[in-house]
Simulated assay, not measured.
Amino acid sequence: MQETPFCLRVRHLLPYSMSDSNTTDFTNPSTFILLGIPGLEAAHVWISIPFFTMYAIAILGNFTILFIVKMEPSLHGPMYYFLCMLAVTDLVLSTSILPKTLSIFWFNSREIDFSACLTQMYFINCFLATESGIFVAMALDRYVAICHPLRHSSILTNPVVAKIGLAVLLRGFMLMLPFPLLARLWPYCRINIIPHTHCEHIAVVKQACADIRVSNYYGLFVLFFLTGLDVLFIAVSYSQILKAIFSLPTKDTRLKTFGTCISHLCVILAFYIPGLFSLLVQRFGHNVALHFHVLMANMYPLVPPMLNPIIYGVRTRHIRDRLLRLLSHKRT
């Protein structure tokens, strides 16, 4: 038996009645309705507290990283340039999601324009891909710094770092462009309710009254090709790094270098594990509760932007010392 389209199954969720003539297909709806976290509507205000806290920490922490690196000439090097790229990416990524999510939680502002929805979808996917690419670049930087320390400054020059950053950004822009273009092609029903806090790709295209296998297949291709290659490159880099660490002559040097790598690995794991889990659950976890889907889909764009400046600020001595000097100078 053919499954009833989602847009027709959820008619009873609308706060107003609509005639049957309003459920006919058309290509571009004017707006979508974001439900927030289905099943937890009564707790939206309480859920907004940790969400807002994470966002505030992400904004403050990443701007602090950018400010410190800009003001401290000794930090003008490849590692800190990549860290600044990561901070900018985190700021764009979290800001693409949180303002609209909080407006749903606080003001029940659920409508979003169709074009704005596709734009949000594009920015989220684009900067998730960009962040993944930056982690690859940072793994390359750590590999060269630890395995080939004498050649680090000659290999990762400022022009090379700039080219790597541009390539990572262009990769995200180009690979994610088909997502909104394909989504705009599908015919949608007039009842366009998205059971989500933001315009997540699969949640949006599921509203189409059409065969969306092309969007699904392309999403899986990007997931396994782009993310798979990035994770493979990072794994190979860190396997070589660990091999080099264990060959260092003294225990103190090994522990110091290993501690630096651990902070990088914590950031990387905090990004990839929730993200891969959420994307796979969205496609294959049909028996998982919908509110769990939505909560997980909010974690991977919010938790890493909050954790990255904290981990790098605490674990990176030059940033920590510069911040302490800045704070002590203000107190005096």
Rank of each mutant, 00 (worst) to 15 (best):
F6V: 11
Y16H: 12
Y16N: 04
Y16R: 08
S19M: 01
N22I: 00
T23H: 11
D25L: 06
T31W: 08
A42G: 08
A42M: 09
I47Y: 09
Y55H: 05
I59V: 12
L60D: 02
M71P: 00
M79T: 08
C84Y: 00
L86R: 01
L93S: 10
P99Y: 13
T101Q: 04
Y122W: 15
Y122D: 04
C126R: 01
T130V: 15
E131L: 07
A139D: 03
D141T: 04
R142Q: 09
R142W: 03
Y143W: 15
V144Y: 09
P149Q: 02
I155Q: 03
G165R: 01
G172Y: 12
L175H: 07
R190I: 03
C209E: 01
A210K: 02
N216R: 11
Y218M: 05
F221L: 14
F225S: 10
L229Q: 10
I234Y: 06
V236S: 05
L242S: 07
I245C: 02
R254M: 12
K256R: 14
K256P: 00
C266K: 14
V267N: 15
P274M: 08
L276S: 08
L276K: 08
F277M: 11
S278M: 04
L279W: 10
H286P: 00
H293W: 14
A297E: 15
N298F: 07
Y300H: 07
P301M: 07
L302S: 12
P309L: 01
Y312V: 02
G313C: 01
S328E: 15
H329M: 08
